[in-house]
Structures are given as C-alpha cells and as structure tokens.
Simulated assay, not measured.
Amino acid sequence: MSTLAQVLAVTAGVLHVGVGVVEAFFFQRPWAQQFLLRKRSSPREVDLWAFNVAFYNVFLGLGTVLGVVLVARGLVDEGRTLVLYTAGFMTLGGIVLWISDHRLWTGTLGQSGFGLATLLATLAS
C-alpha cells in the first residue's frame, strides 16, 4: 500500500472513530445534533439508534486503522484486505445515507469521501 493510501485510511479511520464518539456520548447536545442531523432536536427514541450506530462507526474506524498497522508490520495482504473492506463499507454506507435522505449530503461526504479516496488509492497501489 502506498503512503497516500495509508494516510487516507488512517484519516478515514480517525474520522469514523470521532463521529462515533460524538454519536455515542454527545448525541443529545444541540451542537452534536446539528452536526449529525443538520437540525437541533430529535425524538428520544433516536438515542438508542444513535448509540448503536456510533459503535458501528467506531469499530469501522478502528478496523481501518488496524489494516494500516498490519501493513506496517509486514502483513501487507491482510492489512490491505481489511482496508479495502472497511473503505468499501464506508463508501457504500455513505451512498445509502444519501439515498435515504438527500438532505444529509454533508454526512454522505463525511461518511464516504475519505472511504472512497482510500479505496481508490489502495486499489491503485
């Protein structure tokens, strides 16, 4: 994997972990809802959903970073495979987000932007 692919993968991973932390622990704060939903209120029923989705993002981000660690430790095929899977997951997850609600296009860019860039850079290297 190229250095560019590794930097993009770590960036995508850290971004997903960060968003996961916001979703899990700060979701009820107005600034977090504005950041995540583009509005400042949501029904209380959404809290459990947000907490669950948060950990999908955290695990996805950690998996991406783990892939880069594996590459750095000489397990190139294993690490590259993990990065390709997680980057593909991010990319497709962002597309599904946009299909479900076009107003969340900024979330789509955040979810899939670095994932797609990582995917392309990894495939090219």
Results as ranks from 00 to 15, higher is better:
65 V>L: 04
94 G>A: 05
77 D>P: 02
93 G>E: 02
91 T>C: 11
42 S>M: 14
105 W>V: 08
122 T>I: 06
7 V>D: 01
56 Y>N: 08
90 M>P: 04
50 A>T: 07
121 A>T: 06
113 G>S: 04
30 P>R: 11
8 L>F: 10
71 V>P: 09
114 F>S: 13
81 T>H: 05
37 L>R: 13
46 V>W: 11
121 A>K: 11
116 L>C: 05
119 L>R: 09
68 V>Q: 06
28 Q>L: 07
99 I>H: 09
12 A>C: 10
109 L>K: 01
18 G>W: 00
16 H>Y: 09
7 V>M: 06
10 V>D: 03
108 T>L: 07
81 T>S: 15
36 L>Y: 02
114 F>C: 12
34 Q>N: 09
90 M>D: 13
85 Y>C: 15
73 R>F: 14
88 G>R: 11
60 L>F: 03
17 V>Q: 01
5 A>I: 01
62 L>I: 12
77 D>T: 09
78 E>Q: 14
98 W>F: 15
51 F>D: 05
29 R>A: 13
56 Y>T: 12
51 F>Y: 13
105 W>M: 04
40 R>P: 08
11 T>E: 01
98 W>P: 02
23 E>K: 09
14 V>H: 09
29 R>N: 11
48 L>P: 00
84 L>D: 10
21 V>H: 00
93 G>L: 03
61 G>D: 02
70 L>R: 12
41 S>I: 02
67 G>H: 04
47 D>H: 11
14 V>P: 06
119 L>W: 10
110 G>T: 04
1 M>R: 06
116 L>E: 05
115 G>S: 08
72 A>H: 07
7 V>T: 09
121 A>G: 06
108 T>C: 15
51 F>K: 13
2 S>H: 12
26 F>L: 15
105 W>P: 00
77 D>Q: 12
68 V>S: 06
82 L>V: 12
23 E>A: 11
112 S>T: 03
78 E>G: 10
27 F>S: 01
73 R>Y: 10
37 L>H: 09
75 L>M: 13
22 V>F: 07
28 Q>A: 11
118 T>L: 01
96 V>K: 09
98 W>G: 04
25 F>H: 00
108 T>N: 05
105 W>T: 06
112 S>Y: 00
51 F>Q: 13
98 W>K: 10
98 W>C: 09
58 V>Y: 00
27 F>L: 02
29 R>V: 07
31 W>A: 12
58 V>C: 02
13 G>N: 05
53 V>R: 12
4 L>R: 13
72 A>D: 14
113 G>T: 03
9 A>W: 05
113 G>D: 02
1 M>D: 08
92 L>D: 12
43 P>G: 07
15 L>D: 11
70 L>Q: 13
38 R>H: 14
21 V>I: 14
85 Y>R: 14
115 G>N: 07
36 L>N: 03
111 Q>S: 08
100 S>Y: 02
38 R>S: 15
44 R>Q: 12
15 L>M: 13
30 P>H: 04
55 F>P: 02
54 A>S: 14
113 G>V: 04
90 M>C: 15
73 R>L: 15
120 L>G: 07
120 L>P: 09
19 V>T: 14
99 I>Y: 13
77 D>I: 02
62 L>S: 11
26 F>P: 09
54 A>P: 01
108 T>V: 06
14 V>G: 06
83 V>W: 01
45 E>D: 13
96 V>Y: 09
60 L>K: 04
121 A>I: 01
